[in-house]
Computed example of a mutant assay.
Amino acid sequence: MGRVLVTGMSGTGKTTLLEELARRGFHTVDTDDDGWTLADGSWDAIRMAALLDRHPDVIVSGTVDNQVDFYDRFGNVVLLSVPLDIALQRVSTRVNNPYGRTEPERIEIARYTEEVEPLLRQSATVELDGRLPVPELADRVGALAAPSSSP
């Protein structure tokens, strides 16, 4: 199966990685955009199921409560991680997403890193260091999305 989920905390580089993969011609969906996430913070399950029904070769990025409901639809679940200080530095300077600039949001990122990231790590099939060069990360995720890497 060529579907890959790229997950991780804010500031790990998910959006930048997806942009590079899209530039390389992969079909990508960043669920932080375009209404994929509902007001309660979960994915729109009907919309996500429809996407996965239609596309056997999509790379999806996001971190939401109900993503576990879709793990069996992905060939790989990739956890992108960085140390907390790196994530906080990145969110304070990025221009494509305002989340993480306020102190309450930074505290939330720290709490999620402590409480949620270990859960993501347990269910990930691959963990990648988000400090690696973006082209190298894209090579690795792109190889996972290739049909020959399907389980």
Rank of each mutant, 00 (worst) to 15 (best):
M1C: 12
M1Y: 01
G2R: 11
G2I: 06
V4W: 04
V4D: 09
G8N: 05
S10Y: 00
S10K: 05
G11K: 00
T12N: 05
T12H: 01
G13P: 05
K14H: 06
K14V: 05
L17K: 00
E20H: 10
L21W: 00
L21S: 02
A22T: 10
R24G: 09
R24E: 07
R24W: 05
G25F: 02
G25R: 08
F26V: 01
F26T: 05
T28K: 01
T28P: 04
V29E: 07
V29Q: 12
D30H: 03
D33V: 13
D34Q: 15
D34M: 09
G35R: 02
T37Y: 02
T37E: 12
A39M: 12
A39L: 06
G41W: 10
S42N: 15
S42A: 15
I46W: 14
R47E: 07
R47Y: 11
A50Q: 11
A50Y: 07
D53M: 03
D53I: 07
R54H: 14
R54S: 14
P56W: 09
D57N: 14
V58T: 06
V58R: 03
V58D: 09
I59L: 01
I59A: 05
V60W: 03
V60K: 00
V60G: 02
G62W: 03
G62L: 04
G62M: 02
T63L: 11
D65I: 12
D69W: 05
D69G: 02
D69Y: 05
D69Q: 10
F70S: 13
Y71L: 08
R73S: 08
N76G: 02
V77D: 02
V77G: 06
V78S: 06
L79H: 07
L79A: 00
L79W: 04
L80K: 08
L84D: 10
L84S: 03
D85R: 04
D85P: 05
D85S: 09
I86K: 03
Q89A: 13
Q89C: 08
R90D: 04
V91Y: 07
V91S: 10
V91D: 07
V91G: 02
R94F: 05
V95C: 14
V95E: 15
N96A: 03
N96L: 11
G100P: 08
G100E: 10
G100W: 06
R101L: 12
E103T: 13
R106D: 08
E108I: 00
I109A: 10
I109Q: 02
R111M: 11
T113R: 12
E114A: 15
E115I: 09
V116L: 14
E117Q: 15
E117G: 01
P118Y: 05
P118K: 06
P118S: 11
L120S: 10
S123V: 12
A124Q: 05
A124D: 14
E127T: 15
E127N: 10
L128S: 08
L128H: 11
L128E: 09
G130V: 02
R131F: 02
P133R: 06
P135M: 06
L137I: 03
L137A: 09
L137T: 12
A138I: 14
D139R: 07
R140I: 13
R140Y: 07
R140N: 10
G142D: 01
A143N: 13
A143K: 12
A146E: 15
P147W: 06
S148W: 13
S150L: 14
P151N: 08
